[in-house]
Every structure is written in structure tokens, then in C-alpha cells.
Write a protein that binds this DNA or RNA. Structure first.
Length: 783
RNA sequence: GCCGAUGUGGCGAAAUGGUAUACGCACCUGACUCAAAAUCAGACGCUGAGAGGCAUACCGGUUCGAGUCCGGUCAUCGGCACCA
């Protein structure tokens, strides 16, 4: 990377939620890492964008406000001030001129604007639907906010409830979000998680004729090749066909009872039961397998989900584990239609050759799939079909502290967007931030605010009282950094073009599924309507591991563990106490030295001392006393420049620091010269900017280290004069020899054979062959 | 259950198939000091008197050579979880 580069480089860290606890020690890991990168890029000559901001809407602030009767705005302001002071104390080189906060009306004006652009294009719609309802937060949760059947935030049970909600049609973007992954450089895990979440599958829809009322039932299957093995059908208990079949169902009471029982279960409870499949046969109605012509029974069972595919399946117990279990429980026939397993013992889901399958017999699974789809199309019994697990994004929250949804409802015109001139639609002041008892937003009690006129017809209308989820602001904040004070647009086209894609985005693994997916969706939408110039927002995405307490557990204020060494209770460490004890540079250095950046790491109060000692030793050398005239460590110095330069790019900060430590050890051993110290301080600067500059001044070097160019290594100086070569006899290390670099193989073999220690291992044996690895090793094979 | 990651000294951890344990912590020894701290220097996987032998979770394989590649097993952590 040439140092005369004048290109742009956009480095992004995930902006934090400004909680009352302040910056967590865990935040310092990604922030320091990206700060090091930003400082290095500036020294390399790039025009660097390295901004920071706050994702300030959210429940904890609102709950704190409710409890302490103070406006969330005030709480947010206070918390942000604290965070900024902490960032300054650690010397992060964020561009504070570009700071953004999602709760700032000048910011959320554009969050609302994007929402309206989606609304205008039918991508935001309102629908009555069962939602996840947190019994304690009295709030609707997204599927992803429900963890193991309880609320992700408060841990209270989540139940299902029918409610009218705003949704964003992210499903329209499933294919684009999948395709976009091919062109970006994300850690593989992140791509895999995105793909799994989108959950694309290909197969066919097949129409089954029912025996009554000319009814049909359409199913989705990824295994059309097993159609001959479909011995029964299953529909979700909520399936609409039930009502139509009502007159023909002889056991309606039983079916209805099952349906009601299922609806009372949460998704989680249903999943929990997955070992014991339950269901009820729909008597009086049967279906016809279109391949075999056989009449087969139909069941309603909650192992089939109403929300995926068509809500109905053809059950092939021979080749689907769930169908097999159900068939065993209800004594249904199991037919083998793909050879290769033993369907009497378990479902066979692997590859094989079709059997008992008429015209498919003899074909392998993939061929049989294609042949069956052709046949279905020809007979007008089905079509090829792609499905996704991804569901539309529930976008409403019945809460105060979020962006108001800028829509009014008019009896005549329906839902109508506010005109752009009325944005931002400000959050009104309310007396209480608490959700109403029926679960509506506190905004619903603001009659003056709710009652308005329709922008379309001028008649009476009511405002939407739901607010947006916390994901909204973070879905596009990186764009606002490019032009944060623009009052006429998200950002100017020039700024959007100038900064382009985020070159490097680092954040927590916990955000690689949803935040990344949501923001990619918004970005792709903005691309499609011509607002942004690139289809994808982030060119490169990496993730850091969590910083754990000394006990290997997640740091927690409520931890009661007693540290056997210090006798102190708890496992929390705050940046403040570390800075006070060791200084900000030591904190920066240690948090990078602690281990592999991408793996979790335990905090250690002992190990950090080594980093402080290293900085003290550098400072001691820079006293300028007893310096050598000429460098005696050129070779190591240039190797270190190379190592640090490369390791930063690979996020291997720990080994970069180790290399600088080794160099320092050698400088102590052999004596340091001024010409050694200057590049050492330059390398050290991104890691420990304050002490690097202090030492720079002590040595009275010209200018400031900050404006120094990133050092270049001289390839010629990387070459050692001599090499220590390992000598193996029959693969076992028996000695080492030192020879000039690039000695010819014959010389190496001769020297190795002549070595005293080696000689006694080959005495009396016959030479067979030798393997020489240049400058490294020679293996002598004797027998 | 599926997908993924991880497993190396007392500890945090290094190692493009090529001298395993770099770098750091702790512990130990020495120097300086009346002494301690700090600092500097040295030792530091296990075993053995030594030569040597044995060690990268476990079992096997490929290779002149395996922490690294392949097959299997176990353990820990993370994500998804009836998606037909």
C-alpha cells in the first residue's frame, strides 16, 4: 500500500446504545482496533472517515425515565456526555464533527423519510397478525427478540396476541439480499448466518384433489421426487381450508378442540413438543395422491407451520424424519421410494435411486426431482417453487421512545403518508411514558396530537401512535455520517459518491444476523430508488470476540463471584479504573494484546502489567542517554515493520505487539540508536498514541509522530546473513547448524553430516536420501 | 438434532506441512539496595544422573516430516431449531 495514496477509506464501528452504565470495557476492543486501523490509514495517506454516534432510542432509557420521572431526552443527553468523555479519555480519533444520534429529530427525520419511501412503494404495510407479546414490557416483540420463549430484554414470558402491526416487506428482497453476499468480503460465519436466516429452498408446489366439494389442497415440497411415497397429508391447524371443509368433517368438535389448543401454545411451546408429535385426523375428507391415484388421509397437526410454504404438506414418512415420527405415532403406512436406507427403522433422507415410483424408477434424487417437476407442469398439477424462511419484519412498537411512524389514518383515504414537508414528525411531550393497559403506545393518550387532518382529503384523521423499533436508526446511520448536517437529504449525492461503501465495518457477532440484514435491506432499497450509488453498504465486515470477566463469564454488574486472588466480589472492570491505574495507552495495548481478536478473551488484572512495563521500557530508552550512533538491529527492525504492517490488516494485533516487544528486547540487548527509535515510535503510535508522541518529543524528533508517514520496510534488510538450520535424522531433530543464507543444498548436507551431534546418530547406517528445505531444515534419511 | 468455532506449559497465548511452546503473566535465581519496591540480567513443558525419552484433547491414516492435512471419537462454547 503506497504511502502517497490519496484515496478515501471509510472505517465504521458499531455505534453504541448510550446506557447509563457508560462505555463498557468490552467496547474498547473493537473501538481500539479500528482506531489503530484509522490512524494507520491516515499515516498511509488516505482520507479517512472514522465517525461515531449513538443509537439512543430504546427500552432501558425509557424504563429509567418512567422510574425516575425524567424525560428520556435528558437521560440520553447525560449518558452521551459520559460516553464521549470516556472515548476522549482513551484517545479515540473519532471525527466528532460528524457525530450522529438517532434520537435527534434532524436524524430521525430521515429515518421517517426512508420509511415513507417504502410505504409509498408498498413495502410498508399494516396487517392484523399474531404477534409476540411480552407480558412484562407490554410490548410487541420481533421474532428475533424472543429468545427461548421469553423476552430478550426482561426475561418475561412471551405470548401470542392478535394485533394490527406495521410490517416491512423484507421478503421481497430475499433474493437480492442473498445475491449481494457474493460480492462482499464478510467473515464466512456472517455470510452463513445471513444465508441460513434467509433460508432459501427450492422445490415444487403440488396440487392434491380432495374427495369433497371439488376442493384442492396445495402443498410445498423440496422433495417432489418422493411424491409416490406420500401416504397422508398434514395441514397447519390454522389452515383456512378447515372452515370450507367444515360441513364434510365428521369429527369437527375434535378438530376444533385441537385447533384451539394449538393456538393457545406459543411458537416456543410448539417447538418444545417437537419430540412428541400430535395431530388429529380430519375425518370425512380424503385427498388423492396425484402420482399414485390413492386416497390418503388428511391430518391437522401443529408440526406444520401456517407461516411457511402453503401451510400444508404431503407427508412422506419414508424420507422425512418428522413425517416418519408422526406416521409411527399414528400407525400410518411408510413406503420406500428412494433406495439406500431402511425405512422401517428410520426415515432415509439421503441420496439414492427412485423405487416404487412408476416413471421415476431408476433415477437418482436430483434427476427424479426434475422429472417429477416436468411431469407436474405437463399435467397442470404443480409448479417449480422457491421458498424462504425469512418473514416480513414486524416494524411497530407500542412504545414512547422511538421514531413516530409518520402516517395518519383517514376513514376515507385509508393510511396516508405525511408530506415530506411535515418531517420530522416530532415525538410529542407526554405526561407518562408508560404503555397503556391495553398495550397501546403512550402516544395514543395524546388526543390533541392524535387527532389531525388527512393530508389527502383534508377530512378528520388520526395519527399512527406506534413507533419504530430500535433497529430503524441503525439501519442507515452509516450514510448520515457522510454528510451529517445536510438538511435537504439523507446526504448529498456528492458525499454518498465520495465515501461510497463502508470499506471496513467491524462489530459484534451478535449483530451479524439481524442488524446486518436489516441495514443491507434498507441500503438495497435506497439503491433501487436511486438514492445511493452502491447496492451493498459494507465492503468488508469483521467481528471481534467478547471480553469476559476473569472468571470466564460475561461481565455483569450482578455477578457475585469472589476473586480468590483479590478477594473482591464481582467480575466487572470499567475503563475508568484501568485508565486510572495503568493509563489509557496501557489499556489500549493490553486489550489488543490479550488474545486473538476474533475469539473471546478473559480479562486479567495481572497480564496487563506486562503492557505497562513495555511502554515504560520504551520510554526509558527514549531518555536519549547512551544511544548508539548506528543501528545494530536493522534486520529485526525491518522485519518488525513488515510484521506490524501486515498483522494490523489481518486483525492480528496481539502478534503485532509481540513483534514490537521482541524488537525492544533486542534493542536493549544490542543497544539502540536514534534511527531505530523513530520507526519504533511510529509503529507504536496507532496503538499507544500519547506515549508515542511523548517519547517523540523527548527525542526531539522533527514534527509530530501523528503526521509521520507509515514506515516502509526495505526488502533487502529483511534478509539474514546466516541461518540456523535444523538437522533431522529420519525425521527427528538431532542438532542445528549455522550457515550463510542460501547455502547450496550440498553444503547444507555436508555440514549436517559432519556435525558432531548428528554423526553419532548416523554411524553405521546407510544413507538413503535427504530433503533440504532452503534456509530452514535438512532431513537425512538413513537405515 | 443441524450448522459453526474451539481444545497447545502453572496462566493469556504463538507457529505459509519444516527447530512446538514466540511474546506476555506468574514463579525461581542473581545484580543493584541496609532492606523492600522498581529496574536490569538469567532460568523456566514433563521425565531422566546423563545420553536420551515423552508431550499440541483422544484413536487411526497420509507424508522424509503433522499442532497444522484426511477419517473417526470425546469435551467446551456459540448460532439455528418441526422451514416440509
Amino acid at each position: 500500500m503506497p504511502s502517497h495514496n490519496h484515496g478515501k477509506y471509510y472505517i465504521l464501528v458499531e455505534f453504541p446504545y448510550p446506557s447509563g452504565d457508560g462505555l463498557h470495557i468490552g467496547h474498547t476492543r473493537p473501538y481500539t482496533a479500528m482506531d489503530i486501523l484509522a490512524r494507520k490509514r491516515r499515516m498511509e495517506g488516505y482520507d479517512v472517515l472514522f465517525p461515531f454516534g449513538f443509537d439512543a432510542f430504546g427500552l432501558p432509557t425509557e424504563n429509567y425515565a418512567i422510574k425516575n420521572k425524567i424525560h428520556p431526552k435528558e437521560v440520553t443527553k447525560r449518558n452521551i456526555a459520559h460516553f464521549k468523555a470516556q472515548c476522549d479519555a482513551i484517545n479515540y480519533s473519532f471525527d466528532w464533527e460528524r457525530e450522529v444520534t438517532t434520537t435527534d429529530p434532524e436524524f430521525y427525520k430521515w429515518t421517517q423519510w426512508i420509511f415513507l419511501e417504502m410505504f409509498k412503494r408498498g413495502l410498508a404495510y399494516k396487517a392484523k397478525m399474531p404477534v409476540n407479546w411480552c407480558t412484562s414490557c407490554k410490548c410487541v416483540l420481533a421474532n428475533e427478540e424472543v429468545v427461548d420463549g421469553v423476552c430478550e430484554r426482561c426475561g418475561s414470558p412471551v405470548v401470542r396476541k392478535e394485533k394490527s402491526q406495521w410490517l416491512l416487506k423484507i421478503t421481497d428482497y430475499a433474493e437480492k439480499l442473498l445475491d449481494g453476499l457474493d460480492g462482499v468480503d464478510y467473515i464466512e460465519r456472517a455470510k452463513t448466518q445471513q444465508k441460513n436466516w434467509i433460508g432459501k429452498s427450492t422445490g415444487a408446489e403440488v396440487v392434491f384433489q380432495l374427495t369433497v366439494n371439488s376442493e384442492q389442497l396445495t402443498v410445498y415440497t423440496t422433495r417432489p421426487d418422493t411424491l409416490f411415497g406420500a401416504t397422508y397429508m398434514v395441514i397447519a391447524p390454522e389452515h383456512a381450508v378447515l372452515e370450507r371443509l367444515h360441513p364434510y368433517i365428521s369429527n369437527w368438535d375434535e378438530v376444533l378442540a385441537y385447533k384451539n389448543a394449538a393456538s393457545r401454545k406459543s411458537d416456543f411451546e410448539r417447538a418444545e413438543m417437537n419430540k412428541d408429535k400430535t395431530g388429529v385426523e380430519i375425518k370425512g375428507v380424503r385427498a388423492v395422491n396425484p402420482a399414485t391415484g390413492d386416497e390418503i388421509p388428511i391430518f391437522a397437526a401443529d408440526y406444520v407451520l401456517a407461516t411457511y410454504g402453503t401451510g400444508a404438506i404431503m407427508a412422506v414418512p419414508g424420507h422425512d424424519t418428522r413425517d416418519w415420527e408422526f406416521a409411527k405415532a399414528y400407525n400410518l403406512p411408510i413406503v420406500e421410494v428412494v433406495s439406500g436406507g431402511d425405512v422401517s427403522a428410520e426415515a432415509y433422507t439421503g441420496d439414492g435411486v427412485a423405487v416404487n415410483s412408476g416413471f421415476l424408477d431408476g433415477l437418482r434424487v436430483t434427476e427424479a426431482k426434475a422429472a417429477m417437476i416436468d411431469w407436474l407442469i405437463e399435467k397442470s398439477l404443480g409448479v417449480a417453487k422457491t421458498n424462504y424462511k425469512l418473514r416480513d419484519w414486524v416494524f411497530s412498537r407500542q412504545r414512547y421512545w422511538g421514531e413516530p411512524i409518520p402516517v395518519v389514518h383517514c376513514d376515507k383515504c385509508g393510511y396516508v403518508a405525511l408530506p415530506e414537508s411535515e418531517l420530522p414528525l416530532l415525538l410529542p411531550e407526554v405526561e407518562s411514558y408508560e404503555t397503556t393497559d391495553d398495550g397501546e403506545s403512550p402516544l395514543s393518550k395524546m388526543t390533541d396530537w392524535v387527532n389531525t387532518t388527512c393530508p389527502c382529503c383534508g377530512g378528520a384523521a388520526t395519527r399512527e401512535t406506534d413507533t419504530m423499533p430500535q433497529w430503524a436508526g441503525s439501519s442507515w446511520y452509516y450514510l448520515r455520517y457522510m454528510d451529517p448536517h445536510n438538511s435537504g437529504a439523507i446526504a448529498s449525492p456528492e458525499a454518498l459518491k465520495r465515501w461510497g461503501m463502508v470499506d471496513w465495518y467491524n462489530g459484534g457477532m451478535e449483530h451479524t444476523t439481524l442488524h446486518l440484514l436489516y441495514s443491507r435491506f434498507w441500503h438495497r432499497f435506497l439503491y433501487d430508488i436511486g438514492v445511493v450509488p452502491h447496492p451493498e453498504p459494507y465492503a468488508k465486515r469483521t467481528s471481534h470476540g467478547m471480553i469476559l470477566g476473569w472468571d470466564g463469564q460475561k461481565m455483569s454488574k450482578s455477578s457475585k463471584v469472589v476473586n480468590p486472588k483479590t478477594g473482591k466480589v464481582g467480575n466487572m472492570v470499567t475503563p475508568e479504573e484501568v485508565i486510572e491505574k495503568y493509563g489509557a495507552d496501557t489499556l489500549r495495548l493490553y486489550i489488543m494484546f490479550v488474545g486473538d481478536f476474533e475469539q473471546p478473551a478473559k480479562w486479567s488484572d495481572d497480564a496487563i502489567k506486562g503492557c505497562r512495563r513495555f511502554l515504560d521500557r520504551v520510554a526509558a530508552l527514549c531518555d536519549g542517554k547512551g544511544l548508539a550512533d548506528k543501528s545494530r538491529c536493522k534486520n529485526t527492525l525491518h522485519k518488525t515493520i513488515q510484521k506490524v504492517t501486515e498483522d494490523i490488516e489481518l486483525l492480528k494485533f496481539n502478534t503485532a505487539i509481540a513483534a514490537m516487544m521482541s524488537l525492544l528486547n533486542e534493542l536493549y540487548e544490542k543497544g539502540a540508536a536514534r534511527e531505530d527509535l523513530k520507526p519504533l515510535l511510529t509503529l507504536l503510535y496507532p496503538f499507544a498514541p500519547i506515549s508515542a508522541q511523548a517519547n517523540w518529543e523527548k527525542l526531539q524528533l522533527a514534527g509530530s509522530v501523528e503526521r509521520e508517514k507509515w514506515p516502509q520496510y526495505d526488502p533487502a534488510l529483511l534478509i539474514d546473513d546466516e541461518k540456523t538450520i535444523a538437522v533431522q535424522v529420519n525425521g527427528k531433530l538431532r542438532g542445528t547448524i549455522t550457515l550463510p543464507t542460501d547455502s547450496p543444498d550440498e553444503t547444507v548436507i555436508a555440514a549436517a553430516t559432519a556435525d558432531e551431534k548428528v554423526a553419532k546418530f548416523i554411524a553405521g547406517l546407510t544413507f538413503r536420501k535427504s530433503i533440504v528445505v532452503k534456509n530452514k531444515l535438512v532431513n537425512l534419511i538413513y537405515n
